[in-house]
Simulated scan of single mutants.
Amino acid sequence: MNERARAPFVLVAAGGTGGHLFPAQALSVALRARGVTVDLATDERAVHYGPDFPARETHILPSATLRGRNPVAIARTVATLGLGVAKAWSLLGRLKPDVVVGFGGYPTVPPVLAASLRGIPTVLHEQNGVMGRANRFLSSRVTAIASSMRSVAGMSDALRAKTTFTGNPVRPNVIAAAAVPYAPPVAGGSLNLLVFGGSQGARVMADVVPSALALLDAPLRARIAVTQQARGEDIDRAKASYAHHGIAAEVAAFFSDLPDRIARAHLVVSRSGASTVAELAVIGRPAILVPLPHALDQDQFANATMLAEAGGAICIAQRDFTPNRLAAELAALSADSARLAGMAAGARSAGAPDAAEKLADLVLRVAKR
């Protein structure tokens, strides 16, 4: 009996950024552990992540993101997506997957739309508290929807009827990091601060965090050990500020072991993308979250609000994220270990460490229909 006869075949479709690829990766690990064959359909940006993605084969399809209202740009985007759908149609005819699973972003559109047109069962995973534009476009066409949040804003009754709450799948290294219990800082001891802004870093973190730490009293500055992800052009100035104020700091453009660093942190300062919030919740670490302010759907605000309502985070709008405000929050939290421990517990209460397995269950149910 050949492999296809004895095991389902799942095509996972995800845009080439960590926010989409990480949960897709977690699902793929869970499916492969059950003997399922998995391929990945994505765009050219995923080349950076490709060697680590647990797929039999990766298929690059044309895609483009719809930005702005310029008629020429819209026409080019539609043409590129149309080409992607045509290529995806041909690919699906050759591969014949049992189900196609999309994780959002415009690179999801060609394979999921082509699968729908071919009558192949489809699943969408929505990571945020507000459904993204690509998923909104596809949602009425798919067989089932999985959600990271118990409530997704703006869903119709028809969409809610085919939606299952699974949580946001996290990678195995996140599950491993979650085994490390939170140990709040002791009086006079070190305070490990982790700062990052998503897969590409965030300039606002380099603008605000070093300046905020410079405002702290000298005894507190001496206790702090900073690990900060920064854009390449911001690294030198962040390092110079920390060195000038005697603050121990490691600053780099990328950390491949970020889940382990989250586990070692007493406090995290970050954006609030869906994967970031999911990992903070599963690992259970207190955070100060600064949602991306200009997102069309304000999805990061919804994500941060969810974690804040669980008691695991402080949400600060970017307009209020000033050195003085951050310094005040850091001074208060550093003096209140019990509050930090409570926030860690609140974050963990919102986590879904079994999300990958729940999503795998849903995907295989849909594949059998």
Rank of each mutant, 00 (worst) to 15 (best):
T17P: 05
D39K: 04
A79I: 04
I247D: 01
M1R: 15
P353Y: 10
T80N: 03
N324D: 10
V101M: 03
G197M: 13
S275M: 14
G273A: 10
G232V: 14
L21I: 12
Q300R: 12
G312T: 02
I283A: 00
R221D: 02
I60W: 14
E309V: 04
V38Q: 08
G197S: 13
G82N: 05
D236H: 10
R365S: 12
R365C: 04
A287Y: 03
A41E: 11
T80H: 02
P184N: 05
A161S: 14
I120E: 02
Y106D: 05
R231F: 02
A331G: 07
V85I: 15
A88D: 10
S147W: 05
N128V: 09
P293A: 11
A202W: 01
A55M: 13
A187E: 15
V142H: 12
R32W: 06
F254Q: 01
L11P: 11
A230F: 03
A355T: 09
F137D: 03
A332Y: 07
A335R: 13
R160E: 15
V290D: 05
H48G: 03
S116W: 10
L194H: 01
F137C: 07
E250G: 00
T276G: 00
I288C: 00
D260S: 00
I247H: 01
V186K: 06
R94H: 11
A367Y: 04
G311L: 11
H20N: 13
A14K: 04
V174W: 00
R136S: 14
P110G: 10
L220N: 03
Q298W: 03
T122P: 12
P185Y: 03
L193Q: 02
G129E: 13
E250K: 10
D260A: 00
G198R: 06
A274D: 02
A222W: 03
K96H: 09
A73I: 04
A225Q: 15
A302I: 12
T77R: 09
L216F: 03
A177D: 00
L11E: 02
F53M: 11
V85R: 12
Q25D: 01
T80C: 13
V208S: 01
V99T: 09
L91E: 08
R160I: 14
D260K: 00
A218D: 11
V226E: 01
V38T: 08
S275Q: 12
Y182W: 15
R133F: 06
S147Y: 07
R133D: 02
M306Y: 13
E250D: 12
L213V: 07
A238Y: 01
P97E: 06
P54E: 11
A75S: 13
A222E: 12
P97M: 07
R231V: 11
F196C: 01
T122S: 15
G312V: 05
D234W: 09
T164F: 03
V72M: 12
R171Q: 02
G119S: 07
V204T: 15
F103L: 12
R365H: 14
T108S: 15
E329M: 08
T143L: 11
P23M: 06
R369D: 09
F103K: 09
L326T: 07
G167C: 11
T37G: 02
A249Y: 07
V29E: 02
S199A: 08
L66R: 15
L191W: 04
I74P: 04
T276M: 06
P8V: 13
Q300H: 10
S241T: 15
